[in-house]
């Protein structure tokens, strides 16, 4: 692990995070949005790992484990919601699901 400089790891994590954020903002399909969210979560996890290895401490990996469980739970709830939404509205277009506008 020592071969890879911290900057490279963090840069990769930033690139992944921005990719994920872009996916969330531009995709209209709810499933694609969920997937992009996963990418963002994993980018964050990567940043923790890189930082943990830079300081040589286990805290970063512990945080990653936390994020992993969080992501699993999120996907479970998110997919459940997606199923319900599809059943009720017969669409997964995030923009057409705007019934709660002010």
């Amino acid at each position: 692990m020592n071969g890879i400089p911290m900057e490279h790891g963090l840069l990769l994590s930033v690139v992944l995070f921005v990719l994920g954020l872009t996916g969330v903002l531009v995709r209209r399909n709810l499933i694609m949005i969920l997937m992009s969210l996963e990418v963002m979560l994993n980018a964050t996890g990567l940043a923790f790992i890189v930082a943990g290895s830079r300081w040589g401490q286990a805290d970063g990996q512990i945080m990653f484990l936390l994020i992993l469980t969080l992501a699993a739970a999120e996907v479970g709830v998110g997919l459940g919601l997606v199923l319900q939404i599809f059943r009720r509205f017969h669409t997964l277009d995030a923009d057409s699901l705007n019934g709660m506008k002010g």
């Binding site: 954020l21 969330v24 903002l25 531009v26 209209r28 949005i33 995030a94 923009d95 699901l97 705007n98 019934g99 709660m100 506008k101 002010g102």
Partner: peptide, 18 residues
């Protein structure tokens, strides 16, 4: 004015947060 910002679009909210 403020209630006009509540578009009901989830992507709009996400971009506001970002």
């Amino acid at each position: 004015r403020v209630s006009a910002s509540q578009t009901g679009r989830i992507r709009w909210y996400a971009s506001s947060v970002a």
